[in-house]
Design a protein around this nucleic acid. Structure first.
Lengths: 341, 341
DNA sequence: ATTAGCACTCGTTATTATTGAGTGCTAACA
DNA sequence: TGTTAGCACTCAATAATAACGAGTGCTAAT
């Protein structure tokens, strides 16, 4: 179907285009790449590659640009993953393994690292909180009128919710939270249903009014935790990308990224358990037609925990991005799974 | 110094420029604004206003553009604060008073609202954590090897820090945290010094090794909380602003905003206790020469807690922004101070 | 003091010409 | 038969030129 020589030419064209962002001509290839064939021959091959759908011309008298199909072939069989330099590994490790880090900030740190290394947009999602298992729950009196509900999952994520509750002693709150922990520990948050709640209510009858008031609030609070948390970093990199130097295009992408719902949907369709690369139209979103997405996921104790992705122009250094995202997602998994603790 | 008529003309010019982003000519003013004077007269007055430094021409045959001085006069004596519509007040209230909100998310919600209402960049800072007073402290065993240190301030902010600590029972952790709370409650976090720590260590001697191991970690953890937390939203609005449709300019501003340190510095020089407006060169940062900043602060129980600001082109609707920022910062103060609980 | 009138300036827009990178095709060649 | 030199052709990008018009400053009349 496609000859070895054609493959080499395609690779040269795509490499060159990734570098220069300009349509690549036959003369450029014959001069810059030691394929030992003349520009005329390359022209002929290019015409064939175009017919096969791997290349196209923006207009008749211009060089060639890889099509989405061309990129696909490139990514599938030509890209080699780099190995990350020991220096970079060290940086990543030291920033993610810093023990004095707020648990919720780990994802933020990761997303920052990822966008700084790749110079592209990085997105890290934290799994829906209500799919997590409850590891601990604590009611803390903060002031005369405020109580803080602190929830800890087995993945070490902490949520705190402010509740209005006056004239309640800490030891009452302790009784309530201890009982709740006894009954709910290990349960996924979405599974905490009316029956579980009413059993707890029964147990705590002796405490009186407070329970009647508090329990429904607690139930609502738990119910409210159903959003996917996402962290995005490196958006400004888009502006220095040739493809998006037109403000209009950049704005479309910006607005897509800002749209929580759309982004959530995008993230959710990323397969877990394997690295996935989507190129241009494969993404299926108009605003991202000029982009590629490289996505992976990280795990906590072997379970899929969250997703981690890179968004950039199709014309990106796939090899470098893949190795960076792999290394960071693995490190993140390790840290979350506590193998370094 | 400046006549009443000149003031009226200046106001007309600035209003028009804010609307159109185009240099304003004498004919436009005489036609659109009912000042009862001809374009020739306005031309003369404009020449005078230019001499006084309130206006300038981008080139000889163009209309006038307000200078920073012109904006300053406009802001100081011509801008009228709008009153916010009941409908908008309701929206703001309902989103900030939602009781089931994670404490740390309140600032995020506020910054989002602010940028959505003004269509500009909004920034909200949360005061340095180590200036806050400790209201509660809790060590929670999350897994066999992980312990979570949960800190609560009197302002209701919660931080949680992951610690590595194996083979420790929860009741030991409780003893430690209870003792720490006894000794440190009400103290500002930066004031927790070696002496306080060693007193605690003394008290807990009976618990043995764990204390020796944990206490220095806890001290380091507390020390690490010295950054100002900032939330930014609405950056994409800049891209739809005429002034920044040039990607280069937009990028400079983006990069400035992304620079935590620079942003922190900027925020810190904002006066608390009063609304402040800085125009263009008054800001003193090259990248923001085409911008204005409107800044306020919010309070918790009467004390300055954090700052809240709007960044946009000089050509912004000052009246609307001022009223929005005022309303939101007041509401935020009220919510943080718990008057709605 | 105000304004109509007019010459002048200069950025913007439209038009046209020029350039050059790149192509496809043909014919000669190994 | 595959490869290549050569050439006519295409078309975006750039440069050069002309025409336009919004706006000014100045002068002289009201």
């Amino acid at each position: 179907m496609i000859s070895d020589r054609q493959l080499k030419i395609l690779e040269a064209i795509i490499s060159d285009f990734i570098e220069s962002a300009q349509p690549v001509g036959s003369r450029t290839i014959s001069k810059k790449y030691p394929l030992g064939i003349s520009s005329a021959t390359i022209r002929n091959e290019m015409a064939d590659l175009e017919e096969l759908g791997y290349l196209f011309q923006p207009h008749t008298s211009a060089g060639r640009i890889p099509s989405d199909l061309g990129y696909r072939l490139y990514v599938d069989s030509l890209v080699r993953e780099y190995s990350i330099s020991p220096r970079d590994k060290e940086i990543i490790q030291s920033l993610l393994l810093n023990k004095i880090i707020e648990a919720g900030d780990l994802a933020k740190q990761a997303v920052k690292l990822l966008s700084e290394f790749t110079k592209l947009v990085a997105i890290v999602s934290i799994p829906k909180f209500n799919k997590c298992r409850l590891a601990n729950l604590k009611l803390v009196k903060v002031s005369d009128s405020k109580v803080l509900l602190i929830l800890v999952t087995d993945t070490g994520i902490v949520k705190n919710i402010q509740l209005a509750l006056s004239n309640t002693e800490q030891f009452v709150l302790d009784r309530i939270s201890d009982t709740m922990v006894d009954h709910l520990m290990g349960e996924t948050i979405e599974n905490i249903d009316v029956r579980a709640i009413s059993r707890i209510k029964e147990k705590l009858k002796s405490l009186g009014d407070v329970v009647d008031y508090l329990i429904p609030i607690l139930r609502d609070a738990l119910k409210s935790l159903n959003g996917t948390e996402m962290h995005v970093d490196g958006i400004s990199h888009l502006l220095s990308t040739y493809e998006f130097s037109d403000t209009e295009k950049a704005r479309h992408i910006f607005e897509f990224i800002k749209d929580q719902q759309a982004l959530e949907q995008l993230i959710e369709q990323v397969p877990t358990n394997q690295l996935s690369i989507k190129i241009g139209s494969e993404i299926g979103i108009d605003a991202l037609d000029d982009c590629s997405i490289i996505a992976s996921s990280y795990k906590v104790d072997g379970n899929n925990a969250g997703r981690i992705l890179i968004l950039g122009p199709k014309r990106m250094d796939y090899g470098a991005v893949v190795s960076t995202i792999n290394y960071i997602s693995n490190t993140l998994s390790d840290v979350f799974s506590g193998i370094y603790l």
